[in-house]
Design a protein around this nucleic acid. Structure first.
Length: 519
RNA sequence: GAGCCCGUAGCUCAGCGGUAGAGCAUUCGCCUUUUAAGCGAGGGGCCCUGGGUUCGAAUCCCAGCGGGCUCACCA
């Protein structure tokens, strides 16, 4: 219906979707548009992989709006690739290190839960993707090679062997040129992926010959899973085999994409529409990588922030290098809430520019959490408690409108997140100071007065007690007295209104809290 | 060497053709309380430089100067 709206939309996923539409208009019979994201299961799924799937999915959703052609999303796992390095955080270091150079899919999973090491990592990725309810088709490289699904392309590469070598060799150093081959035979003896020079090629029979680990002359078919392709050739082969129309990649792969595009001309000249995105940086501005273990993982983000806040972060400015660190989470949480509220009142055209439109594929939820995450963090810091009920009671006092039922569970969710964030990033920096002798006496007085009240003491009465004690020790500057209490009780210069806090916190807890400060 | 990104308030950044913005920091004012979980008000800018396009440029284009990252072994 709103075709013009979609055409004029300036949000990046729409720009990409329009690129695809233009691209497929050149081919006569396009029945299904295929999006690909690649994954190397050499360790835990990386947040970058995840970002790629999320963003690709956003483009796909926009494409669905501007075209009637059906779509699919392939998540391709390169699990026939060899294990090169044992990830530092993997629990079975010694066991895994014996499988260097073996295909990831033939390395056992030492946790005993999965068929193979690759299977374990593939499943971790799927778990994350399912959490976001993506609609995708998972394809295993190993399965495809073994089933002969790539055979036609493999033979084509063999036919054009010289041309393809001619593209790659100039990009390599001299030493590497001597050993390079686009085909990596799987050793018939050990099962390792071999990086050996090809001595003889027989195009008619689809056979190559090489010397194996023991310098023994071996012949093998290039088809049927007997050989794997070097990755840049592999990439180009996939575009053709799987008929890929769209694929993103990080900027580190820009030269590789260009090279694979050159190679693709000798397969079926299938080169997808491509977008390169900037890499995520750690707090020092360096590339986040699996091997370094710097920056943030998906799990770490989700420990302190919602799935939606993570999606928002991924949506924003994919072509700009961004620091991905813990301190991004509260901002992203608040920005999400802001955008959600903006979406409710925006016109149809500007709605398409709103990140939440893309995050939720147009099905924007009506409710979000009722309080900004940063405000909640202030509150949790001020209260200095892990008691969810106490926090919730205070939120209710703060909110002008009564809490809607739908918001209640959202609130519970973010209270838990804020508590995690508080414990990890705020609490360690708070420094409660010890009271001076004069202050100690005042606090003892406060304790005694509170003790003499019954349980039903109101917030105003608590407040009155605090004031009366304050007047005695600092009649000229009551503000100072309150600051003093905040510093001693919470390690901060400001905090909640103490009368209300004491009331909600409960008499016994208050007395306990006060007594702790004078010991 | 090649490619990509970034130069906007003291700091971190948003804005990306139509009056220069936010958070933090800073200055001042405000508690026997209409929620101090702070609140209110202010100061602070040749939007890196120079050209171009335009009625109009922080925004688009070109050139330059800074800063950063990535790739040139593997993926």
């Amino acid at each position: 219906m709103n075709n013009n709206l979609y055409k004029n939309a300036k949000a990046w996923p729409f720009i990409e979707a329009n690129k695809i539409k233009k691209y497929i208009s050149k081919s006569i019979e396009k029945k299904n548009v295929i999006f690909e994201t690649g994954y190397g299961p050499s360790g835990d799924p990386h947040i970058g992989t995840f970002a790629e799937v999320l963003r690709t999915n956003m483009v796909r959703n926009c494409f669905k709006k501007i075209s009637k052609i059906s779509t699919s999303l392939i998540t391709f796992s390169d699990d026939l690739d060899a294990l090169r390095k044992v990830p530092e955080d993997y629990p079975y270091q010694d066991k895994l290190s014996k499988y260097i150079d073996y295909p990831l899919s033939s390395v056992p999973d030492f946790t005993g839960k999965f068929k193979s090491y690759a299977d374990r990592n593939n499943n971790l990725l799927k778990q994350f993707l399912n959490r976001f309810c993506f609609d995708y088709t998972f394809i295993s490289s190993t399965d495809s090679y073994m089933a002969g699904k790539f055979d036609a392309q493999l033979l084509k590469i063999l036919t054009n062997y010289e041309e393809i070598m001619g593209i790659i060799l100039p990009t390599l150093r001299k030493e590497r040129r001597a050993s390079y081959s686009p085909f990596l035979p799987i050793s018939q003896k050990t099962g390792k992926v071999l990086q050996v020079p090809i001595k003889v090629i027989d195009k008619n029979n689809g056979v190559i010959a090489y010397r194996d680990e023991n310098s023994k002359f071996q012949e093998t078919l290039v088809t049927g899973g007997k050989c794997k392709l070097q990755w840049k050739v592999d990439w180009a082969m996939r575009w053709s085999s799987l008929d890929i129309d769209y694929e993103m990649n990080g900027k580190d792969l820009i030269p590789s994409f260009e090279l694979s595009s050159q190679i693709a001309k000798y397969i079926n000249n299938k080169i997808p529409v491509n977008m390169s995105y900037e890499l995520f940086l750690d707090e020092k501005g360096e590339k986040i990588s699996k091997s370094k273990g710097n920056g943030l993982s998906i799990d770490e983000w989700l420990k302190y922030g919602t799935v939606d806040s993570l999606s928002l972060f991924m949506y924003n400015n994919p072509k700009r290098a961004k620091r991905l660190y813990f301190d991004c989470i509260p901002n992203s949480m608040d920005e999400y809430k802001k955008n959600l509220e903006k979406a409710k009142v925006s016109n149809p055209q500007s709605a398409l520019e709103n990140p939440v439109w893309h995050i939720h594929n147009e099905m924007i939820p009506e409710f979000s959490y009722p309080i900004e995450f940063t405000s909640l963090l202030n509150l949790v810091t001020a209260l200095n408690t892990s008691n969810i009920k106490t926090i919730k009671d205070f939120v209710k006092i703060y909110l002008k409108n009564p809490l809607k039922e739908e918001q209640d569970s959202e609130l519970n969710k973010i209270i838990l997140l804020s508590l995690e964030y508080y414990k990890k990033f705020i609490l360690p920096h708070l420094k409660k100071r010890k009271p001076s002798d004069v202050e100690k006496k005042a606090i003892i007085k406060l304790i005694n007065k509170i003790k003499n009240f019954d349980d039903a003491c109101s917030a105003e009465e608590y407040q009155k007690i605090i004031y009366n004690v304050g007047k005695e020790i600092a009649p000229e500057n009551l503000r100072k007295w309150f600051i003093t209490l905040y510093q001693i009780l919470f390690g901060s210069d400001s905090g909640p209104r103490l009368g209300s806090f004491f009331k909600v916190y409960g008499k016994n807890n208050v007395l306990k809290l006060l007594k702790e400060t004078i010991n």
